[in-house]
Amino acid sequence: MLHGVRNAAVFPFLAGVLVLLTCDPVQVGVNLTGFLIPPSHQAPSATAPASQTPGASQSGVPVRPTLTPPARPTLSVVVLDPAHGGTDPGARGGAGLHESDVVVALASNLRAALEKEGFQVIFTRQGNDNPSFDDRSALANAQSGAIFVSLHAGSTGLPGTVRVYTCPDAPGNLAAPGGLLPWNRAQAAFLTLSRKLADIAQGELAKQFKGSPNSAPTAAIRQLRSIAAPAIAVELSSVSVDDRSELDRMLPGVADAVARAIASFKPVYDSWPPGGGG
């Protein structure tokens, strides 16, 4: 069963739209019921490219339809994913610290920093619920001009450091016959942009949080795999600290660094692919 996009690497937006358009309607129906964003935060529907309007004159006399490519959206939306929640506390520290709580606090810091930079922010979960990986992906893939940032606080690593991950390369020929890209591998088409975003963010974080790596590592993160947009995961170290205030003190700095990185990434996204065309 293939749900796909054609030439997805060329247009981030087109790919997002088409992944949705062509995915299994039953699955999408299920995923859509999992949407948790308030209506005011809904981006324009990704399933209706406005520029592909069939030609018809006001007088009712048919005219030749004109097909213009959909306008390229610029980066305006950041989907923030406070990971885990509900019955899944994520990583647990000795001092009773739960990853699912830490990332909610980080998400609210990051939201404020991103809104200051002029971005619209959408959360994948509200309160302490725990949408599935696919529900979170469906929400992100329904946005245009968006990137996805998954937030984590791990159990290991040097306390006070931060790592920004992207998915590793998908080996072999990803596309199925006909050039279609399966829904569950949607991220593969966006890896180049995801890496650029991750490297900028890791660079900003390494300046502020000593001991953090200088270049962004990769990991096979389940949540990122089905995201049809540039996507990164940010993981703080760690919930194993003795005192929660150690982690809380990191949050504003992490939020500012990530927001700065996203603002620096915007021109890259807006002019992608380099040289225009498409």
């Binding site: 390369d169 998908a170 020929n173 200088n214 990769t218 096979a220 795999r225």
Partner: peptide, 16 residues
């Protein structure tokens, strides 16, 4: 080193 050697990491591979 995962941070410096992304190419050497265990990369997920999916069957078509």
């Amino acid at each position: 080193t995962p941070t410096s050697a992304p190419g050497k990491l265990s990369q997920p591979e999916r069957k078509p």
